[in-house]
Design a protein around this nucleic acid. Structure first.
Length: 537
RNA sequence: GCGGGUGUAGUUCAAUGGUAGAACGUCAGCCUUCCAAGCUGAAUAUGCCGGUUCGAUCCCGGUCACCCGCUCCA
């Protein structure tokens, strides 16, 4: 049975998991808001990650717990940080697309060759308008194209374009080609320009800025000097604080710094609900180690991270591991061990998979770059290795918190025609936004009063709901739809013998337990069902 | 960014160039001893802007958003 994403999106809105951002204004492409239940779910996943990384980090290969400390760095950093990281330089150039070949060029790499006779003394750039009115078509070439190739293509295109080519070309028998950068030519002439890899004019789009970082300005005045960026990844904040952490927290190589937070990318094309959005949340850990140990730690962290995703409920075949091909490696991972992804089969990627987490070997790219740009020494003096001085290498497990939340919802979404709601969310109890609902069988005081008492007791320890109104079936159904694993129902027997009914979300089975054992019951169920997770709380 | 599609209540759907309906959900009340029961009542919608028209939710244009396929994803 294939699950329709539309149904999931509808449920998310209907029950308060995820809303379109600025909904009442018609939304905003690439932005989503997390509703009352969505934020609980997301926080639960976030807290479990933090616990697995920072509070109780795993036991390392040598049998002792590894060292990881936390961090929460600013979203806006000195813009030089993004120059050093490579985010500013390589990706801020205006790009031109060819509609026909779908190729993409840097606008300053394409030259349009204007034809003129040697005796024509006009300056090409200053009289560009005249030149374009004299000849209907000029040709663009990528920087460095051989003159012979240019001449040949001109002959070919002109012969094809004009039946009376000879007549037109006659006065230009002696001609010169004058290259002009495409970015210097008004876009109104694009319809007269033939792209480098095509034969007909007008296929090139207007040059577009292609920097995926959001700009902002620090301070009251807006100028180039005050320009800054919203971070496109949380990782750099970790590298920027690497030295501070080392100097203040007594960690030794190898160790990790973990951070959870928002990141922003001005995606060309946000898609697929919250999967690719412009504002999203990352859970990243940078693991610093000696260059010789990267392989060991890469394998270690990959296993740990797979365990984590399985433990939070992605235990099915929908989870897959995949190594990046050389052609898709990031600038920082071109050397070294590359990147391996943990991927999830979302309904919208099915039968393919979408990235949930990447475990990358970032080499010493970032620290070296920041050392160069900042002038600060970032090498590590390792007393455990005879005071060897080296630049640590980094293994980075970088997970998407918002993507993970979406995967949890997709995985939990279970169609069941047999039950009144027709669907339920099969969340792991540790992840469920509500752990239990307290339901008096009727709204009468004799049921409502003990239910309220139980609710007040349980809410000290668990996220629980008290729901008194409407008939019991409706209330069960509502809890099914939001994925509450347990419902405790107070009825007449409760008054007699102090027991309540426990109703299990997945099986709909019921059993009676003593009311004063409910907290303990819940505690044990959470633990028993927690799989590889440590208790959630 | 390109091509295609879709926008009506919270959700899923009707209908119409002339007063926009339903189901479910929500809320209020009654009822109710375990799975959206029953009764009564209530609130809530034509994405936005413009054009054509006596009159537009419907026709046209633009825009925004969502979906599908490509592209992109440092």
């Amino acid at each position: 049975m294939t699950i329709d994403m539309k149904d999931i999106v509808a449920l998310c809105k209907r029950r308060g998991f995820i809303f379109p951002a600025s909904d009442i204004y018609g939304g905003l492409n690439g932005f989503w808001d997390y509703g009352p239940l969505g934020v609980e779910l997301k926080n639960n996943l976030r807290d479990l990650w933090w616990k697995a990384m920072v509070v109780t980090p795993p036991i390392g290969p040598d049998g002792t717990p590894v060292q990881i400390v936390g961090l929460d760095s600013a979203i806006i950093q000195n813009p030089k940080a993004w120059v050093a990281s490579g985010h500013v330089g390589g990706f801020s150039d205006p790009m031109v697309d060819c509609k026909e070949t779908k190729k993409r060029y840097r606008a300053d790499h394409i030259y349009v060759y204007i034809l003129k006779r040697p005796d024509d003394k006009r300056d090409v750039l200053e009289n560009i308008e005249e030149f374009f009115s004299e000849m209907p078509v000029y040709l663009g070439f990528v920087e460095g194209t051989e003159p012979e190739v240019i001449a040949k293509k001109y002959d070919k295109i002109y012969q094809k374009t004009f039946e009376n080519f000879e007549k037109i070309d006659k006065p230009r028998q002696e001609k010169e080609y004058h290259p002009v950068e495409l970015s210097k030519i008004s876009s109104k002439f694009l319809s007269q320009i033939v792209g480098p890899d095509t034969k007909s004019p007008g296929t090139l789009t207007e040059p577009k800025e292609f920097n995926l970082m959001f700009d902002t300005y620090v301070g009251a005045t807006q100028s180039e000097d005050s320009k800054a960026y919203l971070r496109p990844e949380t990782a750099q904040g970790i590298f920027l604080n690497y030295k501070n952490v080392l100097d203040s927290s007594r960690v030794k190589m190898p160790f990790g710094i973990a951070q959870i937070g928002k990141a922003f990318r001005n995606e060309v094309n946000p898609r697929n609900f919250i999967f690719r959005s412009r504002e999203f949340e990352q859970m990243e850990m940078e693991w610093f180690c000696h260059p010789e140990e990267v392989e060991k730690w890469r394998d270690f962290w990959f296993d740990e991270r797979v365990k984590f995703w399985r433990a939070v409920g992605l235990a099915s075949d929908n989870l897959q591991m995949r190594k990046h091909g050389d052609d898709e490696l990031s600038h920082y991972a071109k050397e070294g061990l590359g990147t391996s992804d943990i991927e999830y089969k979302f309904p919208f990627t099915d039968p393919d998979f979408g990235e949930l987490e990447g475990i990358a070997h970032r080499c010493d790219f970032d620290l070296t770059a920041h050392q160069e740009h900042s002038g600060q020494k970032l090498e590590y003096l390792d007393p455990a290795r005879d005071n060897e001085r080296y630049m640590p290498h980094v293994i980075e497990p970088a997970a998407g918190l918002t993507r993970g939340t979406l995967a949890l919802i997709c995985e939990a979404y279970t169609v069941d025609e047999a039950r009144p709601s027709g669907v339920y969310l099969n969340f792991h109890p540790a992840l469920a936004p509500k752990k239990a609902a307290i339901l008096p069988l009727t709204a009468k005081e004799e049921h409502a009063a003990p239910a309220t008492k139980l609710y007040l007791e349980l809410r000290e320890e668990f996220a629980v709901d008290l729901d008194i109104k409407q008939n019991i079936g409706k209330r069960y159904a509502r809890q099914d739809e939001i994925g509450t694993p347990y419902c405790f129902t107070i009825d007449n027997d409760t008054l007699e013998d102090g027991t309540v009914t426990v109703r299990d979300r997945n099986t709909m089975a019921q059993e009676r337990i003593s009311m004063d054992k409910v907290a303990e019951y819940l505690r044990e169920k959470m633990k028993a069902n927690a799989g590889g997770l440590k208790a959630a709380a």
